[in-house]
Design a protein around this nucleic acid. Structure first.
Length: 627
RNA sequence: GCCGAUGUAGCUUAGCCCGGUUGAGCGGCUGAUUUGUAAUCAGCAGGUCGAGGGUUCAACUCCCUCCAUCGGCUCCA
């Protein structure tokens, strides 16, 4: 709804001719109001979604202004020309009558000029700074509708556990004995003594390891990343992007903000009006994207696509996507208001192609997570679909469960409520028994048409494609959260935590026993990187004037995977007795030459992105970002 | 957003119940030590006690409001 409020000496009108087919009945052809706040109003299309909300917000705005101006007289004046996207006359009139009623209940003297007529009017504006105000009202939460949607979903939603052999069991009947995490995920149940655990494990770790931190100068849920955190995030981004490009994704870049009034977007947008950041720029309003869908769909809308081009895969690593989650929901790297999200859509011709592609992307997601360092035992799968789809495609679905190799949670609806017909998620269950989705893929059967995306089929006819939405890893920050929580679990069992070798900012630390060995360390660091110009071994040197044991202690606390002490012995033999953080890395009782260490490391990291060390070579020149 | 808890130096924290010039460890700086596989020693600097208001002769301490963080709830296309 658009409002134009004018503090007037008087407002006067005269009814002339009909402006619409069935205008409001009126006997009064002429009226005048002295010392009134004249409120020109235009009810818009989107107001129809939440009429009661709009009335409430409009009344608030009007009374606020009236009280400020100390005015008791209010003239409501329908004025269609304030907007180009008007509500139906019937609805508009209802809303205006409702506003009139509410205002009169609050003891204002209210007049309303008749709806649907051309009128001549005269107005005298007082002209002081507050005398002319315009307001835009967008219905807030569409509460009633959300409620009913929720209820409907609850009523028609059924929960099962599906095992590899294809048995579908009611969730209450399933024996969870060997499936503790699935149980936690399925019931999201509370364990006995959870009182006052302090902040989540990964939050403590992300600060301690100088990965990421809260930024008080920004909005909550917008993080700062220190050099080490940025580095880990960069490598994850690169790795996921590489895998999607190998799969055939065409990487694009699209804007982070979009016009709220764009006809296609606004429909989609107003289903979830309370969730975006909004930006006002000149006279236009923009929202920050909450997914990569818009940009890619708008691009696909303008593209010329043949059936031969399908499946067509479009990809973007969104830095960032924005969602204004409720403040209480935000936690560390798990749930943010600004996050980095890989999003690959696939346009397909029909359901058969959709299902084939779904399988491919299922494998891709599983493999991406595994290679990152999150394997099958760390995740629980959920699958959501309708009863009919399940019945018709049972074998297809059971095949997915076989691939995962353990039972999954299934949610089924009587009829389709959302835009997708089939969706899978891989969920991570953390130290506090919270579950969060990582990878996901959906078969969307609505948005091809909604965005008017077309392809030409064999016969030359134009068709709407189905669209798959996939994030093969989930949000990158959330992947970091999962990796940290996974290590926290290890720590609680008394095991040493470690960032996967390919992600460790420092892989090797040299500790010279005295000043005179610093230059030898430098020589070896260079040697480690001279073997190949395409493979990096990230090494640094602790040249500070501290005791050897203190330097080792600190390297251990920094989770450095390989620690090498450099002294007379090593200089002579050209061999090291490394401290390996975990036994999978190497044998502590063996001596290693630089060449052997190089091979050991690159063997484990060569299929991952290669980047040099993101920090100073010498620890004496490294600042502390935290603590 | 709702309910509860917390906020003291860059970090971790003592003091607050019962009002009377904030105390320490780590880190930083300076000096000594030149170190062989998880903390070398000494000195120095560093605090509008989250912000604003109130009560009081006097507030880190008691009261109110706000902000931030944590936990729970709700929520998570």
């Amino acid at each position: 709804m658009k409002l134009l409020l004018i503090h007037s000496d008087y407002i006067e009108y005269e009814v002339k001719t009909k402006a619409i087919k069935t205008p409001e009945d009126t006997t009064k052809k002429h009226d005048r109001f002295e010392e009134a706040l004249t409120v020109f109003t235009a009810v818009e299309k989107i107001d129809e979604k939440g009429p009661s909300q709009v009335v409430k917000q409009a009344v608030e705005e009007i009374t606020k202004t009236a009280d400020q101006l100390k005015v008791r007289n209010i003239m409501l004046y329908p004025y269609a020309h304030l907007s180009s996207d008007l509500a139906s006359p019937k609805k508009a009139q209802e809303i205006l009558v409702e506003i009139e009623y509410e205002l009169s209940q609050k003891n204002y003297n209210v007049k309303r000029s008749p709806f649907g007529w051309y009128k001549a009017f005269k107005i005298s504006c007082k002209g002081h700074p507050l005398s002319e105000l315009s307001r835009e009202i967008i219905p807030g939460k569409i509460e009633e509708e959300n409620e009913s949607l929720k209820k409907e979903r609850k009523l028609s939603s059924y929960w099962y556990i599906l095992t590899q052999d294809g048995t579908l069991q009611d969730i209450d009947k399933f024996n969870f004995k060997d499936y503790n995490n699935l149980k936690k995920f399925s019931f999201y149940e509370k364990e006995k003594s959870r009182a006052v655990k302090g902040e989540p494990a990964h939050v403590t770790l992300m600060k301690k390891l100088e990965i990421a931190d809260y930024e008080p100068a920004s909005d909550a849920g917008n993080m700062r990343f220190y050099p080490k955190g940025r580095f880990i995030k960069k490598l994850l981004e690169q790795y996921v992007t590489r895998r999607v490009v190998d799969y055939g994704g065409l990487e694009v870049e699209t804007p982070i903000m979009y016009d709220m009034d764009h006809p296609t977007l606004s429909k989609y947008l107003h289903r979830f009006p309370a969730r975006q950041y909004q930006i006002e720029s000149d006279k236009r309003n923009f929202f920050l994207r909450f997914a990569a869908c818009f940009g890619q769909f708008l691009m696909a809308h303008d593209a010329t696509i043949s059936y031969k081009d399908l499946p067509l895969k479009i990809y973007e690593m969104t830095r960032y996507s924005f969602r204004r989650e409720q403040s209480g929901e935000l936690v560390g790297l798990r749930r943010l208001r600004a996050f980095t999200m890989p999003d690959v859509h696939a346009l397909v011709s029909d359901m058969n192609m959709a299902m084939d592609e779904f399988k491919v992307r299922f494998d891709l997601s599983l493999s991406v997570l595994q290679n990152i360092g999150i394997d099958n035992s760390d995740i629980e799968m959920a699958l959501r679909t309708t009863k009919d789809f399940y019945k018709e495609n049972k074998n297809f679905i059971v095949d997915l469960v076989k691939k995962l190799g353990k039972p999954i949670l299934v949610e089924m609806w009587d009829k389709r409520i959302f835009y997708f017909i089939l969706k899978f998620e891989f969920n991570f269950v953390d130290m506090s028994d919270k579950a969060s989705a990582l990878s996901t893929d959906q078969i969307d059967i609505e948005n091809g048409e909604r965005y008017d995306i077309k392809f030409t089929d064999k016969n030359g006819t134009q068709k709407y494609p189905l669209i798959l939405h996939c994030s093969p890893s989930g949000a990158i920050e959330r992947v970091m959260y999962a990796l940290l929580e996974k290590e926290a679990k290890k720590m609680s069992k008394g095991e040493k935590p470690m960032i996967p070798l390919w992600l460790s900012p420092t892989q090797v630390r040299f500790i010279p026993v005295g000043d005179e060995f610093v230059k030898d360390c430098k020589k070896y660091v260079d040697e480690l990187n001279d073997v190949s110009k395409y493979l990096y071994v990230r090494a640094d040197i602790d040249d500070r004037e501290e005791s050897v044991s203190k330097k080792i202690r600190e390297a251990e606390q920094e989770w450095i995977p390989i620690i090498l002490v450099m002294g007379e012995k090593e200089k002579e033999k050209k061999k090291f007795n490394p401290r390996f953080r975990i036994k999978e890395l190497g044998d502590e009782n063996k001596e290693y030459s630089i060449k052997e260490l190089h091979n050991l490391i690159t063997e484990k990291t060569k299929c991952y992105p290669q980047e040099p060390i993101p920090m100073q070579l010498y620890l004496s020149k490294k600042p502390k970002f935290k603590g």
